[in-house]
């Protein structure tokens, strides 16, 4: 256990080891290990209820009330699970940020986009109003919102779904975090805007050296952007490895089943980027 910690802390920004979560006596996570590295997108796949989202929420200490957690989540030498609430709050948004599934509900409908971009910047980074505004406009430009000077004065409902998710990503990036957890960031969006959001995430990861945890049930999404892929089932990590290996030559039967369940077009998309035909490699 301790050796593994050494190696994990060596090259990863964030290392999750032996994470278990129980809610109301039911074990949701049963010993999850995961390492995130700067500039890499780590895809976390699995069917709903497998514990993908819980893993993401556990990193930020946002698990539902009454959840019992054990294990270790190491970020720059600190264990987030044993951090006092105040210090954990200083990590949230500043060092580890999160993008949620549905941008229609994850942005406050009554606050301007500018306010939501700047409030945690001003809190974490102690910026003045003007500095925060400048930075907010920069961020809006970075996520390619047209007319950023004007856009920051508007409200979420005045943007389209894809734009809102771009804004949510800008909000997450505002304090220059090292780790970004994206929980099904494209699931609530039209297929046509999904690719744009994924390209944006990939680009930010490369440009800023972000470590991204991309939680998704969509293996097509996974194959498009992930460097590493982990597959979860029933609160356990069944397989982890480079994208090419996991998606092309899956070792675990569950991963194979997942790949086979892909609809035709998503299978082709996966094949196009992975360079093989995973769903046809294994006859049913």
């Amino acid at each position: 256990m301790s050796e593994r910690h050494e190696t994990a802390a060596g090259n990863g920004v964030l290392a999750i080891e032996g994470l278990t979560v129980a809610i109301g006596g039911k074990e949701i996570l049963r010993g999850v290990d995961l390492t995130l590295e700067p500039g890499r997108v780590h895809g976390l796949a699995g069917e709903s209820g497998s514990g993908k989202t819980m893993t993401g929420l556990a990193v930020l200490g946002l698990l539902p009330h009454g959840a019992r957690v054990s294990g270790r989540i190491a970020l720059a030498g600190r264990d987030l699970l044993s951090l006092p609430p105040k210090q954990l709050n200083a990590v949230r948004g500043a060092e580890v940020a999160m993008v949620f599934q549905d941008p229609a509900t994850s942005l406050h409908p009554m606050l301007t986009v500018g306010r939501q971009l700047t409030e945690h910047m001003r809190h974490h980074l102690r910026l003045s109003r003007g500095e925060a505004r400048e930075r907010a406009i920069d961020l809006m430009r970075k996520v390619r919102i047209p007319g950023p000077e004007e856009a920051i004065g508007r409200y979420p409902h005045q943007f389209s779904g894809g734009m809102r998710q771009r804004i949510a990503i800008a909000v997450a990036l505002a304090c220059a975090p090292k780790v970004l957890i994206a929980d099904e960031p494209t699931t609530a969006l039209d297929v046509t805007v999904q690719a744009g959001i994924l390209r944006l995430l990939r680009g930010l990861c490369d440009d800023l050296g972000l470590a991204v945890l991309l939680v998704t049930h969509d293996l097509g999404v996974m194959s498009a952007v992930a460097d590493e892929v982990s597959v979860m089932k029933d609160g356990l990590m069944v397989e982890t490895g480079p994208r090419g290996q996991v998606l092309v030559e899956p070792r675990h039967a569950y991963t194979r089943a997942l790949l086979e369940s892909l609809p035709e077009n998503a299978g082709n998309a996966a094949a196009a980027t992975a360079g093989a035909e995973p769903s046809e490699g294994e006859p049913a």
Partner: peptide
């Protein structure tokens, strides 16, 4: 939840 994730 998003506000909590922002560390406000």
């Amino acid at each position: 939840r998003a506000a909590r994730a922002k560390g406000l």
